[in-house]
Amino acid sequence: MSGISRRRFLAASVAGCAATTLAGPKKALASGTFSGYPDGMGVLVDLTRCVGCRSCEAACNKEQKLPAPGRPFDDMSVFDETFHGGKQKRRPDENAYTVVNRYNPEGGAPVYRKVQCNHCNEPACLSSCFVNAYTKTPEGAVIYNSKVCVGCRTCMVACPYQVPAYSYSSSLDPVIKKCIFCYDTRLKKGLPPACVEICPQEALTFGKRKELIKIGHQRIETHPGRYVERLYGEKELGGTSWMYLAPVAFDQVGFDPSPGNEPIINNVKDFLGTVPMVLAIWPAMFTGFHLLAKKHKGHDEHEHDAEQQHGEEGEEQ
C-alpha cells in the first residue's frame, strides 16, 4: 500500500514536471511592449483633403488583382449603402481591401473616410494567431501567410478595427483577405502602395512613420481650426502605421473615440502570465491535497485491518 502511494506520488510529480517543462517555455513570451520598427513606413490620411472619388478603391482592386466590383468605381451611390438596418456602412471584405465611406457630421460638409488595415505596431491579429500566420515586417506592413492558416478566424474577432475578412464562399482554400500595404509588389521595393500613388488630392501621404507623426502635428498647428487636435493612430491601441487627421470629432466619422492606448495583447497578458504559475504550482498543490486527504484514512476501496493501517501511517510520517 505505502509502496503504491509512493509510486503514485512520484508518477504525479514526474507528470507535473514533464507538463511544466514541455509547456512552460512555449507560453512565457508575453512581456514587453513593442512600439514599432524604427524605420517602419506609414501613411497619413488627411480626411479634410479626401473628396470621395474612390480612385484608391479602383487602384487597390487592380493592384491586388481582385474581382471586378458589383458597381463600378465611379458610381457614387455606394456612399448611400447601409447594411443591417442602417447600422453599418461598407467595410473591407474579400473582394475589396479598402473602401471609402461618407459621413455627414452635424452641421458640416460631408467627410469621406478611407478604411483599410491600419497596420498596427502590435497587431491584435498577429498576437491572437495560433499558427503565427501574421508578420509585422520591418517596413511596417502586417502581412499574412495563407499557407499555414487553419481558418479559426480569431484574428477577425481580435482586430479592433474589424478589418480582416474571410473568403467564406471557398470550400477548399478559404483564407483571410486584408490589405497588406502592397507589401509584395511595392512596399518591399520602397514604393508607396497603389492607393497612395493614385490619390489625386494628396489626401494620403506615404513616409516613415516617425516623420508622418511630425507632419501630422505640424498640419494641426499651422491650420488652427481645420483639424481636431488628435492624430488618430499615433498612440491608439499601441499605435498604427496608418494614421488619421480629421476635421470633426473622430466618433462622428466612424472611429472608436476611446479605444485606449494599450495594444490588444495587453488584455491577455495577465492570463498568459498565470499559465506557467498554474503549471508549476498545481502539481505540488494537488498532490499535497491528496496526501493530506488520505492521511488517517484507508485510501483504497478495500478494508484494511488495523495492523496494516498502523504500518501505513508509520511509513508516511
Partner: peptide, 14 residues
Amino acid sequence: VSFGPAAVLFLVAW
C-alpha cells in the same frame, strides 16, 4: 507545422 505560442488559442489547442 507553425507555432504561435503567444496566442491564447495556441494554449487552448494544446
